[in-house]
Write a protein that binds this DNA or RNA. Structure first.
Lengths: 188, 188
DNA sequence: TCATTAAATTAACCTCGGTTAATTATCTTT
DNA sequence: AAAGATAATTAACCGAGGTTAATTTAATGA
C-alpha cells in the first residue's frame, strides 16, 4: 500500500513547520557527466533524490577492476545503506552518467521525520522491502541465469536505460567484461 | 538501534490481549530432515521463526538444476518476501536440512500488530534494512569475488553452518557445481 | 558386521569468459 | 572535414568451471 509517491523531499506529507526544516536541510546540487558524487570509502551520511539524469553505483576492487551495483535514474532515491547502518565508509562510488540534478539531505533529518510521521514510517518500510526484493531478484539472476540470459532480461526490462548507458557499463553491471558482452551480442 | 531481540513470536513487546491473539495464531510445527516445508510456486502467506534446526531456501530451474538462496538457522525469522508483497507464489522452496521446530504465523496477523505497535514497526524496518544489506553484500560477492573467494569468505564467516551442511549444498549456495567446489578445495 | 546407499573425489573433454593486443567504428572538437 | 579520443569489435590464447562417468570414501540400516 503506497501512501504517496515521492517526487522530491519537499513533497513529504509532513507539517508546514517540518517542511520548512526540510527545505532548509535539502540542498539541490548539479553535477556534470563523469563527475564522482561520492567516493568509495568516504562516509556517506546523506540521502539523495535524483531529479534528472542517471548515475551508477560502482565498486572498485583492489586489482583495479570495476563492477556496477546499480543504475539510479530520475525519480529514484538512493544512498549508502551500509554507511547509514554502520557509520562506516561507503562500499561504492556514485558517478554521474549524464549531467544530473539531485536533492541531498542528511540521513539524520530523514530519520527524525520517520520517527515522527507514521506515513513516512510506512514509506520507509515499503522502501526497504522493495529494495530487499530487488536485491533478492538480482541474487536469483546471478544464481540461476547465465550472463547471456541476464543480458537479455535486462534489455527487456530496461530498454530506456540501455539506450542511455555505455555497453561497457552494462557489462560491468552484468558481471562480465565488456569484451564478453560484445561477444554475446554477436553470437548467432 | 535494536529495540528487542526476537526469541519467538510470543515474545513480542505487545499488550496482554494481543499476546493472547498471537498465541492463538502461532502454530509450532516439527519437520524431519529432508522434508519440504513449502514448495516453490505455492503462495506462502506465513512468517516463520526457526526455534531449532536449519533449513535451506532453494530455487529449482526449468532444466532441473537447483540453487540455494540462503540458509536459515535457529533464532532467525524467514518467509517469502515476494509472496508477501505480490500475493503470488513463492519463488523458492524451503527444505529442512535437520529435524526442525518452527513457529508459524500468518503474515496478516503480524501486519496488524506492526500497524499498532511503534516498537514492532521499528523492528520491521530494521529487519528489512538488515535483509537488504545482506542481499547487497551477496550482490557484491557475486560481482567482485571469484567462486574460490566466495568459498573462503563463507567458511570464515560461517564455520558452524559449514559443519552442518553437505558440501554439495554449499556449492549450490556459492553458485557453482559440487564438482567445481571439490576441485577448488583441493587446488594447491 | 556387512550391505546398500549417499557423498565426495578424480579424470577427460568441452564451453564460456578473462586477458592482451590489434583493428575498426563512433564521437568530439576544433 | 580532418584529427584525436573514446567505444566497440575481433582474434588468439589460456584457465576456470560445466558435463559425464567412473572411482573412492563415508554414512546408514538391517
Amino acid at each position: 500500500m503506497k501512501i504517496f509517491s515521492l517526487s522530491g523531499f519537499e513533497k513529504f506529507p509532513i507539517s508546514v513547520s517540518d517542511n520548512v526544516l526540510v527545505k532548509q536541510s535539502v540542498k539541490v546540487l548539479r553535477f556534470n557527466k563523469n563527475d564522482t558524487i561520492t567516493h568509495q570509502g568516504e562516509v556517506c551520511s546523506d540521502i539523495y533524490f535524483m531529479r534528472t539524469g542517471l548515475v551508477k553505483l560502482s565498486y572498485s576492487t583492489l586489482e583495479g577492476k570495476e563492477f556496477i551495483k546499480s543504475f539510479i535514474r530520475d525519480g529514484e532515491m538512493f544512498g549508502s545503506l551500509y554507511s547509514h547502518l554502520t557509520g562506516g565508509g561507503s562500499t561504492f562510488s556514485i558517478v554521474a552518467l549524464e549531467d544530473i540534478e539531485v536533492e541531498v539531505m542528511p540521513f539524520s533529518i530523514l530519520q527524525g521525520l520517520i520517527e515522527k510521521y507514521p506515513a513516512l514510517q510506512q514509506f520507509a518500510l515499503s522502501f526497504f522491502q522493495q529494495l530487499a526484493l530487488k536485491k533478492e531478484i538480482r541474487e536469483y539472476e546471478f544464481l540461476c541465469l547465465s550472463a547471456q540470459e541476464r543480458y537479455e532480461k535486462f534489455c527487456q526490462k530496461n530498454p530506456e536505460i540501455v539506450e542511455r548507458i555505455k555497453q561497457a557499463d552494462l557489462a560491468l553491471y552484468l558481471g562480465v567484461t565488456p569484451i564478453a558482452l560484445s561477444r554475446m551480442k554477436h553470437r548467432q
